[in-house]
Write a protein that binds this DNA or RNA. Structure first.
Lengths: 337, 337
DNA sequence: CTGTTAGCGCTTTCAC
DNA sequence: GTGAAAGCGCTAACAG
């Protein structure tokens, strides 16, 4: 491996001079600068980032801790993070936790040892907040990508409540009175916020919230199938379903297909997230667009700003959702239910 | 930040002793060992991996260079890599190149500076091979996840040719004589190998290869739509289509839907990769299962083995594909075409 | 404008 | 079984 010492020796200058031209710091005569550059090119010398990090305390590394890159929600988010990081000269360490607190801990620990400059953390459980202390006390910047009730932290999230409101309100507006809500896990903060939006819409138009119509399961296809099955047992059954995410909606679609229940004719359906498959399944899914890529981008921007200026005030940035009308929710006109 | 020196001082021992207990190297009396461990826990000391790397030359970092995590093929692969890496104590640096040679170069350079222990590289263009030299001369291990005609490198890939053969042969077996092949970019090695399998199947049963039926475009939905449109202009049109990947097949499905061409009744369709959406779109897509997760796993295993023992002989590992029968290719019995 | 020097935090001979 | 000390490759005062 060729070191800074090699190029210095080759030219009879000091390593300090070479370091200066590499970093563009301090004054170096144009002449020496050119010579140094030439030798660097000739030797194919690349500065050792590790050594650099040891002295400067800047690793140019950012950790991204998410649930599972295999979940269709995350690739776009990760890409948003990556694009911003990369153009700012940072590299991305990817960590999949499967929402396990123990994994979150482990990764956080690991990233701290690796001296990352910052961490973008998706928090799932209140327990994850402890790890935030670990991060902060290691002097590492952190940005949360989940709703969090703590203004001493920078957090980026989409307007879950508003999105859920839009979805529910849409179903009501097209004539539905009995709207079920197939939610994610009860303790998830995402579930909590989406539930709020659902209730808000119902309250607004004076429909009483019927707890029978609110089910909980995992945020995936299996959860959706399970709840689809269960909701049919309620009497009277709902005429519309708001699924807390597209994967749950997908499960509903798959289960109803088996039962020959037609969407939207028999039951209307709205999802949440607008992942790729929402417009690929049949019927095309009406859903709430969740700005995944922008979430990643914004989180990365905030984090990098904080790395560059740690005194920056913390902020919460809320990104807007949007109703995307497709075929799974047909307009019912003047129809008695 | 608390350093190894702090814990040494706290106990009145030398840093060497502390280092020994952390790494489990050399002899340390059980008594000191316990005391050291206690102090470490008390101080919440974490070894600085950067400093460690500088002395040991082992960063415990692995770079993964792929086209685009947003392409549904990659998340599973990345997960396979990540799972193996993580359980072996390595962290993953994710790089998206969008198949641009310049990006490949840039990332390789970057990863070398960051002193990664190894790189898993997807090569697209022959030009990318130059970067392999850069990696090797930096003393970094590399494993390729693409077919490559060079036994001096370790490469992992699926049996593209066999998969394409299975797909084409299946279409022929169910009664089709005019099978079109909607391929990816002409110069891509994936395209080349899938084309070989297509031709092999045709040749085997004595069907003449008709170049009219072979089209090229990008490996995505837009490419599929374009080629679907073009293939319809051929006279006589094919009775079956083999799409070089599922995204192309998806484009075909979408375009045919617009034209009211029924799959498989009017034209049968087989894809390649078996990404998630293959069984979600309608008709469900018959396709070739490509072991994405295993590809990632195997690549990571090989890479880590090589990192641990660089003298290990290079090998090419070929993973099998498998035909997955679904609805887009219906069996035609004893039918004249 | 350029060189000298002291670390950054850790591992690793080499002594004792 | 333990410590002293060198050094990994680089940057950043501090001199000159």
């Amino acid at each position: 491996m060729t070191t800074i010492y090699d190029v210095a020796k080759q030219l009879g200058v000091s390593t300090a001079t070479v370091s200066r031209v590499i970093n563009g710091t301090g004054r170096v005569s144009e002449e020496t600068r050119d010579k140094v550059k030439a030798i660097i090119a000739e030797l194919g010398y690349q500065p050792n980032q590790i050594a650099r990090t040891l002295t400067t305390k800047k690793s140019k590394l950012i950790g991204l801790i998410i649930a599972d890159i295999t979940n269709p929600f995350y690739p776009a988010l990760a890409r948003g993070v990556q694009d911003v990081c990369h153009s700012a000269g940072y590299d991305l360490l990817l960590c999949n936790t499967d929402e396990k607190a123990s994994q979150v801990h482990r990764y956080v620990f690991n990233l701290c040892q690796k001296q990352v400059d910052g961490i973008i953390l998706q928090v799932f459980a209140p327990k994850d907040l402890e790890t935030i202390e670990v991060i902060k006390s290691a002097g590492i910047e952190v940005v949360i990508i989940s709703y969090i009730n703590d203004t001493s932290l920078t957090a980026i999230y989409s307007n879950e409540m508003e999105g859920a409101y839009q979805a529910t309100r849409h179903l009501i507006d097209i004539g539905h009175q009995r709207v079920a809500f197939l939610n994610g896990p009860k303790k998830s903060s995402i579930s909590v916020n989406r539930l709020k939006g659902y209730k808000k819409a119902l309250n607004e138009v004076g429909i009483k919230v019927d707890e029978q119509y609110i089910l909980y399961a995992d945020f995936n296809q299996a959860g959706g199938e399970q709840m689809a099955q269960d909701i049919l047992k309620i009497n009277p059954p709902p005429t519309a379903i708001f699924a807390a995410n597209d994967l749950i909606a997908l499960g509903v679609v798959q289960y109803f297909e088996k039962c020959n229940i037609r969407i939207p004719n028999d039951i209307a359906l709205v999802g949440f997230d607008d992942i790729e498959l929402a417009h690929l399944i049949r019927p095309k899914l009406t859903t709430i667009a969740n700005p995944k890529y922008e979430l990643g981008q914004t989180a990365a921007q905030q984090l990098i700003s904080r790395i560059q200026d740690p005194t920056m005030p913390n902020s919460h940035i809320v990104l807007d959702t949007r109703l995307v009308l497709r075929d799974s929710s047909l307009v019912r006109k003047e129809q008695s239910l």
